[in-house]
């Protein structure tokens, strides 16, 4: 274990811990934009600069491993001035159109600008102008809002194993894009969206549906495959407008294209809304009472004539445990047959 003192608080950390992680263990906050706890350190945004005794210049806490006896100061007037300058530089080349931005209220850059009083007017000059032109139906890529933190690049490679995007060009012209600046052609898992600290990456179907502050968050489980990823339904006006997943869930906040972007069926106009009975080959709407009376009398009739084993029930792997339990109990007890199964084999 290595001894370290941060802002006067002493602790011990295992070999390989970074100064940033050590500070977070001590509940000392250091601002970051490019750092993500599940990705390798980058040191790109320069916001986590700290002073370390014996080192003449400020260093990035996220890339500096702790050495024994290290003494760190996370906040001095000079450091705070440096951080503010970094933010001013980022904002000088940012649209700063928070009033129209999908991510307003849920944007790390906006938060930091607020706390540091950074307006983006200190270094006014040329701005990057990029058209929004990615034709894919899932992800909006507004590269004018990109701060080049590289979290999307890392998550795509390290977590998803895809590597669909990377840094291209140099200097002022640097940007993150797919090969040859073509449209994205990836797995559309949206991991990049979930790690983007600004409004550069959002879901296309989220557009103008509501901001985070207007949303009721309901934690649930995905309705697709058997992995059972934890997800959070973002609800506004009785409509799911977005699906997210929290990083402290067992699935670490990662989802796939279906889990993250495949919720639209819930609100589909094709949903069945009334019980239907077929008469002369067409369906007619009936009341619940009528429909259930009809079913019950037909089933009783068939049971009487042909026996309970002439009736079967297929339950659903899409329904809950409780519903499945009740379904088989119904088939076994109310109908009186063991002809009950579901699609495990199909």
């Amino acid at each position: 274990m290595l001894k370290i003192t941060i802002d006067g608080k002493a602790t011990q950390v295992p070999q390989g811990t970074t100064v940033l992680d050590a500070a977070r263990m001590l509940d000392i906050s250091i601002p970051t934009l490019c750092h993500h706890p599940k990705l390798t350190p980058f040191g790109g945004c320069r916001l986590c600069l700290v002073e370390i005794k014996g080192i003449p210049r400020a260093v990035t806490a996220c890339t500096t491993p702790v050495t024994d006896g290290m003494e760190v100061t996370t906040s001095t007037p000079q450091i705070e001035q440096l951080r503010k300058s970094v933010l001013e530089l980022i904002l000088s080349d940012h649209p700063n159109d928070c009033m129209l931005c999908e991510s307003a209220g849920d944007c790390t850059l906006q938060e930091l600008a607020y706390f540091y009083g950074a307006k983006g007017s200190t270094f006014e000059g040329e701005r990057r102008v990029y058209p929004k032109r990615d034709g894919n139906p899932f992800l909006e890529r507004d590269m004018e809002k990109c701060i080049m933190c590289g979290r999307c690049v890392k998550v795509c490679d390290e977590v998803q194993g895809v590597g669909a995007i990377d840094f291209t060009y140099r200097g002022f012209k640097s940007k993150i894009c797919p090969p040859y600046e073509e449209d994205l052609n990836c797995e559309f898992c949206g991991q990049c969206v979930s790690t983007c600290p600004t409004g550069a990456l959002t879901g296309k179907m989220w557009s103008l549906k509501g901001r985070q502050k207007d949303v009721k968050e309901v934690d649930s489980v995905c309705s697709y495959c058997g992995v059972g990823c934890n997800l959070t339904l973002n609800v506004r006006n009785n409509e799911i407008i977005r699906v997210t997943s929290k990083p402290d869930t067992w699935n670490e906040g990662w989802l796939c294209v279906k889990g993250r972007f495949g919720y639209g069926y819930v609100n589909s106009p094709d949903r069945l809304t009334k019980p239907l009975i077929k008469k002369n080959d067409t369906f007619e709407e009936v009341s619940w009472d009528f429909a259930l009376d009809y079913i019950s009398s037909k089933l009783k009739e068939i049971k009487k004539e042909f026996g309970a084993d002439s009736i079967g029930g297929l339950s659903s792997a899409r329904c809950t445990n409780e519903e499945n339990y009740l379904f088989q109990k119904f088939i076994r007890s109310a109908i009186g047959t063991n002809n009950v199964d579901h699609c495990a084999r199909l």
């Binding site: 309901v218 809304t273 119904f330």
Partner: peptide, 25 residues
């Protein structure tokens, strides 16, 4: 699994449907 929105129209959850039908049976 938690309820987040209301079902459309007269749609009912499967549990209620099965309970009601079972009672009728």
């Amino acid at each position: 699994v938690r309820k987040a929105v209301k079902a459309p129209g007269e749609a009912q959850d499967d549990m209620s449907i099965i309970m009601e039908l079972s009672a009728k049976m």
